[in-house]
């Protein structure tokens, strides 16, 4: 635990790398949310830029396909006035046999300041942070089935905007939790921010091994699990991650775990419906719900930009002026 703390935070306890929610602390998460709050207005201005990271070079190092995450990271970096380099490695160096470490050394030689990394292997962002030059910050944009902490933070941001606070909330996560890095990071963030009742809802084949270690309540029946929840987070059914025989059919899955208006009636009247996207309509969520009044799925995407701006700025030890010490709410 201590070791990871040291890796992510500097001697003053400030953010250096953002790899996983685990090992961080509540105050730091609140700081990220507050900083993001102060940065949201920028996206609404006619000139959508602040000079916080002017002169810095940020590399989006994507070893796995992504549209939403890469685009929002790119926009976030550009709104902070950084120079952005997008590298899609699937079709690049490692395909020619270059090791991850060699790729890293080459990019370092180009004097970059930050790596935003997505990789199919769990632990890849940790590995890069451990081996990168000391001046470089690493942001995990999703590693294998381990963590996707910026996604979790934008979800927390969305929940706070909808609900105001985290205590006394009941949050349910529904779907392929076993294979989901998003769910792992969400669970850690929710529990760190004080949510007492975190539920995961799925058939046994999609529940992670030893769920007790995560401090969650496990449900196998969607109707039972949705009772009186404040927030329901639907996960995408990650078909490409399915190994073996986890589910019989999309049809049976939708019957048992698909979110419909009828099932949503069991939740609190002001329930918020979330989804990290991209959504499979008619597989895990009915269009009526996805496009309905309780869905904040598109807000999540736009919040992603402000949250990622906040995390990037904080990892580079920069803060927007209006959130200078003492003025944060």
């Amino acid at each position: 635990m201590k070791k990871r703390n040291r890796l992510q935070l500097d001697e003053q306890g400030r953010l250096k790398h953002f790899l996983t929610i685990e090992g961080l602390n509540r105050q730091l998460l609140i700081d990220i949310l507050d900083t993001a709050e102060s940065l949201t207005s920028i996206s609404e201005q006619s000139i959508k830029k602040v000079p916080l990271l002017r002169g810095k070079t940020i590399v989006n190092l994507f070893f796995e396909a992504s549209t939403r995450t890469r685009t929002t990271f790119e926009l976030a970096a550009k709104r902070l006035s950084a120079d952005v380099l997008n590298i899609n490695i699937q079709a690049s160096a490692t395909a020619k046999g270059e090791t991850l470490l060699d790729t890293l050394r080459n990019l370092e030689a180009m004097h970059c300041d930050m790596f935003v990394v997505r990789h199919a292997d769990s632990g890849a962002a940790h590995f890069i942070a451990q081996h990168a030059a000391p001046h470089i910050s690493v942001i995990n944009a999703g590693d294998g089935q381990h963590a996707h902490p910026t996604q979790a933070m934008l979800d927390m941001f969305t929940i706070r905007r909808e609900k105001g606070e985290f205590h006394r909330l009941t949050v349910a996560i529904v779907g392929d939790i076993r294979h989901s890095r998003v769910a792992r990071s969400q669970i850690h963030a929710l529990s760190m921010l004080g949510v007492e009742d975190i539920r995961i809802i799925a058939p046994k084949t999609l529940i992670p091994t030893e769920p007790d270690a995560f401090g969650v309540h496990v449900f196998h029946d969607l109707r039972e699990g949705l009772r009186d929840v404040d927030v329901v987070i639907m996960l995408r059914l990650q078909k490409e991650r399915m190994r073996g025989a986890s589910l019989p059919s999309e049809h049976e899955y939708f019957q048992r775990y698909g979110l419909t208006e009828a099932k949503l009636e069991l939740a609190k009247p002001d329930v918020t419906v979330m989804h990290p996207g991209p959504i499979n309509r008619g597989v895990e969520i009915d269009s009526e719900v996805a496009d309905g009044p309780r869905s904040v799925i598109l807000q999540q995407v736009s919040h992603g930009i402000a949250v990622r701006m906040a995390i990037m700025a904080m990892a580079m030890q920069q803060r927007p002026p209006e959130t200078a010490e003492g003025e944060r709410r």
Partner: peptide, 16 residues
């Protein structure tokens, strides 16, 4: 199944 760690609490946390 091409796993690399014990299937247990730690592997589950690390997503391995």
């Amino acid at each position: 199944n091409n796993g690399c760690v014990h299937e247990g609490a730690v592997g589950s946390r690390l997503g391995l």
